[in-house]
Amino acid sequence: MIWELNYAMFVFLIILAIAAITARDLIVAVVILAGYSLIMAVIWVEMNAVDVGFTEAAVGAGITTVLFIAAVSRTTRRSKD
C-alpha cells in the first residue's frame, strides 16, 4: 500500500465528486460519477477488497451509469444547478 498514492486518489475522488454534483449537463455529471466509481473501485482493490472492487466497477460504474443515462435520456440533460 502506497499511502501517497492513496492520498492522491482521494483528492481526485473529492474533485470528481464535487464535479459530479456541480456539472450542469447531466450526462457529463453521470460520466463523472462513473469515473468516480471507477476510482473508488481501484482504491478498494488496492485495499485488498478485490471482489468488492470488481463488483463496484461492474455495478457502480457500469449498471448505474446505464441507468442514469437511460433516465437522463428520458427526461432532460440540462440542470439548473
Partner: peptide
C-alpha cells in the same frame, strides 16, 4: 442544495459509496 432530482440521486450515490 440541488433541486434537480437526478442530482440528488447522484448525491445519494456519493453518500452510499
Amino acid at each position: 442544495a440541488k433541486s434537480n432530482l437526478i442530482k440528488k440521486i447522484i448525491g445519494l450515490n456519493i453518500f452510499q459509496t
